[in-house]
């Protein structure tokens, strides 16, 4: 066990955890932020995507000991009022079916658009390829990313 001070969504959080504990479980269980989802635990599905600084990161394979001073943003902190352009586009396009993958999809999309504000359709599909949606909402995800890019 060790103590970690993590900057998450602009606030400092102190937590005791085994150094190998993935950030995903620290968020979900130590800090009660369950918006970030568990899908595979193997960096294969994207459900656990958070931002480490501005980079979309799979929190299920990131040991808490390696977070260091990087700032973490989770779905809960993407915007204060739930009105980040990507979130708005997601609601507008009524993307979700079961909704379980969507926090990860939104976090991936938000980080991607920050880097590439004018993506082509191919760029969007390629950027979202690491996030599995078992319900098959891929078309709406692409449409929502596209309209978020425009806004």
């Amino acid at each position: 066990m060790a103590t970690y001070n993590l900057k998450i969504n602009g606030k400092m959080h102190e937590t005791d955890a085994d150094p190998s504990t993935p950030l995903l479980w620290v968020l979900r269980e130590h800090l009660d932020m369950v918006g970030t989802k568990f899908g595979c635990g193997l960096a294969q599905c994207g459900a656990c995507t958070v931002h480490l600084d501005d980079v979309a990161t799979r929190s299920c394979v990131l040991p808490v000991s390696q977070v260091g001073n990087h700032e973490i943003t989770t779905i809960e902190g993407l915007s204060e009022k739930g009105d980040h352009p990507v979130q708005k586009a997601w609601v507008e396009h009524d993307v979700a079916q079961c909704g379980y993958c969507q926090a990860g999809q939104i976090m991936t999309a938000a980080a991607f658009l920050k880097k590439n504000p004018n993506p082509s359709d191919e760029d969007i599909a390629a950027a979202m390829d690491g996030n599995i949606c078992r319900c098959g909402t891929y078309l709406r995800i692409r449409a929502a990313v596209k309209s978020a890019a425009k806004s």
Binding site: M33, V34, G35, T36, T74, I75, E76, L78, G82, Q87, W90, V91, D94, A96, G99, Q102, A103, I106
Partner: peptide, 13 residues
Amino acid sequence: KNVDGQKIATGKP
């Protein structure tokens, strides 16, 4: 629209 759409997009439990 999905009545839980906003909650899903904001990561509510």
